[in-house]
């Protein structure tokens, strides 16, 4: 499949967003006026894009009403991003060496594969109840770690195993030691794959953090914000928070893709 690129592509992208927003607005308005309804869905209760926009602008920064100090979306985004980045860094530090070891050495592969295969099939959300009890703090970072580490490990393994054997053989012929082969041949060859793992992992981690913040206790974070706004029946703010999550996730993905293309350009 080939995507349109350049100005035409951008135009179509923007158009699709406009059409989506319009359809959303029209559907809600129609439902509110009892002209069109989807059975079993309270379409009329969904805030319109216009209401959502006002809610987004209104709750962007910290507000103070008497004693009550309501954190702005900016604070929530920051708190969630910090958690994802911390979880991501820990996952990277642990995931890459494990991936290289398991991918390169048959012995380590056989040793760790069953464990990795079992644990990676437990979704990050399944760890939430346990982490509530075992972590005094930082439970949400752990949830992100679980989300990020397995895509990194698996992609690293794949990257290491797909290293061109001719290159390894050539290095051996030239008298390179095992550690030099790993450092000079295997890692550079696996790097694009590792970055892909990081990108996928952070995507999973970002989604997991929102769920984790809904359950694990912290006064700031986008997940917490959405949950709280829902509790108060402030649905426009809630939807605004959801959209912010989507946009940040998208920006994160694109940013890593950009970095990958900019700095790791030796492999197609």
């Amino acid at each position: 499949m080939k995507f349109e690129t350049g100005k035409r592509g951008l135009l179509i992208n923007i158009l699709s967003l406009i059409v989506f927003t319009l359809v959303w607005q029209i559907l809600v308005i129609l439902a509110r006026n009892d002209i069109f309804n989807i059975p079993f869905i309270r379409l009329r209760d969904i805030p319109t894009p216009v209401e959502t926009w006002y809610a987004l602008v209104g709750s962007m920064f910290t507000r103070i009403y008497g004693p009550s100090f309501t954190y702005g979306i900016i604070n929530h985004v920051y708190a969630s991003l910090v958690r994802v980045i911390e979880g991501g860094i820990i996952a990277f530090i642990i995931g890459v060496p494990v991936g290289i070891g398991v991918g390169y050495s048959k012995f380590l592969g056989n040793l760790f594969n069953p464990i990795i295969e079992i644990i990676r099939n437990m979704p990050p959300m399944a760890w939430i109840p346990l982490s509530i009890f075992i972590f005094v703090s930082g439970g949400s970072i752990f949830i992100v770690f679980i989300g990020v580490v397995f895509p990194i490990i698996l992609n690293t393994i794949q990257g290491v195993r797909s290293t061109d054997t001719r290159l390894i053989d050539a290095a051996k012929t030239l008298g390179a030691s095992e550690s030099m082969i790993v450092k000079k041949v295997v890692i550079p060859s696996a790097l694009p794959s590792i970055m892909t793992g990081l990108r996928i992992g952070l995507g999973v981690g970002w989604m997991a953090i929102v769920a984790a913040e809904m359950v694990i206790k912290s006064p700031v974070g986008l997940g917490y914000f959405i949950w709280n706004m829902g509790d108060l029946g402030r649905y426009s703010e809630m939807v605004a928070g959801m959209i912010v999550i989507g946009v940040i996730g998208y920006i994160m993905n694109i940013s890593i893709l950009l970095l990958q293309r900019r700095f790791i350009n030796w492999v197609d």
Binding site: F61, T62, I74, N75, V77, Y78, L81, I248, I251, M252
Partner: peptide
């Protein structure tokens, strides 16, 4: 944009 949000968040926090 993401850098700006991060910096703004830092300052706000």
């Amino acid at each position: 944009i993401i850098v700006a949000i991060f910096v703004a968040g830092c300052l706000e926090s």
